[in-house]
């Protein structure tokens, strides 16, 4: 069988037992086996059942991504693994807090673009704004590219939260 060497990005969601060390296990698996992590988020999602959800954006060949899924799935505290980007349409969002320090024309331009991108102003001084923006990774990247020449000073991003469209659940 021929090996497909094209790379693709995968958004993988992992439902795990919320226990100490679980994040270390997942991150250690990626570093130990040389897989990429482009983004990672983790938070409890079902308190009563002690479950957390980890969303990982990674990239690799089809064979590597299948390996990543299989490796995650065999960790003892892992309940379920889904490759959202493969299994069907999905929604992926991240949030960013973006600090722009500028005055005069640049400041005005930053605010105008923020409105166009539907970023919210959550803090302002005479020389700075903090924008809050939610969207997919490409939208955030595009906005940050525009802010760079306008005084982009600092960014804090959450990483991707993702979920399948429609009635499908993990």
């Amino acid at each position: 069988m021929a090996i497909d060497t094209t790379l693709r990005t995968a958004t993988i969601s992992v439902l795990v037992e919320n226990e100490p060390g679980i994040l270390a296990r997942v991150v250690g698996l990626f570093s130990g086996r040389g897989y990429n992590i482009d983004s990672l988020t983790v938070a409890p999602v079902e308190d009563a059942r002690h479950r957390s959800r980890i969303n990982i954006v990674t990239s690799g060949t089809e064979m590597v991504i299948a390996q990543i899924k299989a490796q995650l799935d065999r960790l003892v505290p892992v309940h379920r693994v889904a490759d959202l980007s493969h299994d069907g349409p999905h929604i992926a969002r991240e949030m960013a807090l973006i600090k722009v320090i500028a005055t005069g024309e640049k400041r005005v331009e930053a605010l105008r673009l923020a409105e166009a991108f539907r970023a919210r102003v959550v803090d302002a001084t005479t020389e700075s704004f903090i924008f809050e923006m939610t969207g997919n990774t490409e939208k955030l990247d595009a906005f940050l590219d525009l802010m760079r020449p306008l005084g982009l000073a600092e960014v804090s991003r959450t990483g991707v939260a993702a979920i399948a469209r429609g009635t499908r659940i993990i």
């Binding site: 069988m1 064979m63 390996q67 299989a70 799935d73 065999r74």
Partner: peptide
């Protein structure tokens, strides 16, 4: 399952 398709398809 992680042993399958790891080295050899």
């Amino acid at each position: 399952p992680s042993s399958i398709n790891k080295n050899v398809p």
